[in-house]
Amino acid sequence: MNPTLEMQPSISLEVRGLRKSFDGQPVLRDVNLFVEPGEVFVVMGPSGSGKSVLLKHMVGLEVPDAGEIRLNGEILHELGSLSQYRVGMVFQSGALLNSLTVGENVGLYLSEHHLGSSAEIAKIVAQKLKIVGLKDIEHKFPSELSGGMKKRVAIARALVIEPQLMLYDEPTAELDPLMAVVIAREILRLNQTTHSTTIIVSHDRELAFGIADRIAIILEGSILVVGTPDEIRSSSNPLVQSFITASVSKDRIDV
C-alpha cells in the first residue's frame, strides 16, 4: 500500500508570544495565534508586515527570539519534531529546485522517501499537475515557466505530500482571476477531503473572505484582530476597515 494515501489526523497549531527581529529590526512582536485542527486560517496584512516570516517560524525554518510554536501541543524546537508530521509549504517564490525538472520537483518527496516506483510516482505527479491545471510540462525546467506556472507547480509539489498541515504563502498572487478561483477551490477541496489544517497568507481579499474559517490581520508584526470573515467585515476598527475596503477608482483620486 502506498503510505502517502494513509489518512492521518489533522493537527492544531499554536503560536505563543512569538518575537523575532532581524539585525535589531523587530519584525514580529508578540504574535499569539491558535489554529484549530482542520481549520482554514487566513493571515492578511500589508506587505512587509512579517507574514512570510511568521509562516517560516511555523515550520521551523526560522528560530524564534522568544516565544514558541506548538504542533498538537508539542513544542516545535527544531526540525526533528516536525518529521513526525506531514507538512506542506508553498513558498511565496515557489522555491522549486532549479536543477530538477518540473516532474522531478513534484515527485521529489515521493522519490526521496522511496514511496513508490518511478511509474507510480510519474502517475501521481501527472495527476497533481492536472489538479493545478498543468499538463505535459514534466520535462520542462522551472526556468522555462512563468511565475504563475511556477506557483502552481509548487502547489502540486505540496499536494503530493498529502499534508496534515498545509501552509500557503500567497497562493494566488501571480495568477489570473480564473486560475485563482481554481486554486482556491483546490485548497478548499484538499482541506475538506483530508481535513488538513490550512494556513494561508494572502492579500487576496476575495480568496480570504471566500474560503477562510477565520481571518487574522497582522500589522507591523503583531496580530491586530482575529475572527470569522463576518466578524472581520463588521469590525469597527478603522485600521481593519481601511485594509479590507481599500480600493481604487478613477474619479476618487485627488490630483
Partner: peptide, 25 residues
C-alpha cells in the same frame, strides 16, 4: 555556488519542509 544559490532562493528551505535532509541530499 550551487548550494549557495539553492540557499538564497529558498530551495534548501523547501527541502527541509519536505523532510529531506540537506546534508543527505
Amino acid at each position: 555556488a550551487e548550494i549557495g544559490s539553492m540557499k538564497v532562493y529558498q530551495e534548501v528551505d523547501a527541502l527541509r519542509t519536505m523532510n529531506i535532509n540537506p546534508t543527505h541530499y
